[in-house]
Nucleic acid binder design. Sequence first.
DNA 1: CGGTATCCCCCGCGATACTG
DNA 2: CAGTATCGCGGGGGATACCG
Lengths: 224, 224
Amino acid sequence: MTSYGQFCPVAQALEIVGERWTLLVVRELLCGNYRFNQILNGVPLMSRSLLAARLRTLEDAGLVVHHPTGEYALTPSGRELEPVVKGLGIWGTRWARKDNRPEDNDPVLLMWDLHRNLHVDRLPAKETVVAFWLRDVEAKRSRYWLRIQKPEVELCLTNQGFEETLKIETTAQALIDVWMGHKPLNQALKSKAIAIEGPPGLVRDFPKWLKLNVFAPVPRPDVA
Amino acid sequence: MTSYGQFCPVAQALEIVGERWTLLVVRELLCGNYRFNQILNGVPLMSRSLLAARLRTLEDAGLVVHHPTGEYALTPSGRELEPVVKGLGIWGTRWARKDNRPEDNDPVLLMWDLHRNLHVDRLPAKETVVAFWLRDVEAKRSRYWLRIQKPEVELCLTNQGFEETLKIETTAQALIDVWMGHKPLNQALKSKAIAIEGPPGLVRDFPKWLKLNVFAPVPRPDVA
DNA sequence: CGGTATCCCCCGCGATACTG
DNA sequence: CAGTATCGCGGGGGATACCG
């Protein structure tokens, strides 16, 4: 990116982090995705070569270090971008895109987020497999399994022969609405937008396992 | 800008404000520059057509309204970007570009900032003209006059025949260092990096007239 | 002053293939 | 798995001229 030609620190910051994708890569690192392909998972529309270029730029600018193990990590400087990323998330939650675009409902992203944000301490002690069926997604990418072996939670894209303890039938849209805090889970369950089937005890407890997205509690603007 | 294809609010925010220049335009509006050419002044490397396009985009996205008077203004949504812009400024102050680039020292930008940030209540009651000579700037753009007629302060790029009360000889670099809080004004005066000439009373008071940049007080990272 | 309209160039980026 | 190398295109944006 060519310079903004300004001594203003806002401009100088944007020269480093203002390029397309860059702050989303930082977001991934802030969320704890340290490996190249993990990061790529979080920005599925980004090309491999571009991600490599961005990581290199961030490294050169001193926001990221690349460990010999292959892991990337934020430096103190990089970590201090958290307020900026958070600020953007809060603003986005309040003001961005009122219209849901189905093409933004990437189910892999959703399930990946979800499986990394469970209340581990509330999970059942016995091995449990939760099967998800997202009806509004093309068949190939519509089925997911959470394999809970406390404290591990594994996300599977195929059933590798295990028995399904809980079955959840819903849509990516409904799940995202809950995950993003747009709609309460209770309501989605009541309206059958999210339907759970299985042993009554587990069905009752399931809602307590879920954490919501970091931005779910952000107050929406008053529609005055 | 083509979509990021994500339901993450950070990504959705960046779809709106992540394009090159956009947040700098918002910064100008946050600073109180409401007219097209004023904004352009704050982003001198931006082309007129591009600024027009960006303002249009911001208007369409509901962050900006364009009044019949010709003035642009932020909506509540636009104003809520202040934490993001401020966050970038803080980060930039702490971590961006340790090397000063002379080409970033736009003297017009500097003088414009300066003249809009004086402690009006501390200014002399009598009409006063402060002449600036920036020795490190090409002759054509090296001279400026602040015409103080309380509570008005006017920035002039030519001497329209008025008498100079105070004469300040310095460099854009030195003045920026003070303005940005990199160096204390006292020190710059002592070392003659900034030299003031005129009636002793006014020379003594001048330092009290200046406000520093909003980011000047930001603590710099410890160099451990 | 406050923009639009048009043309055209460059480079950011995607696609694809290859490597250790 | 974690990238690099190369090629080719599309469109973002600069330059310039024009307008109300």
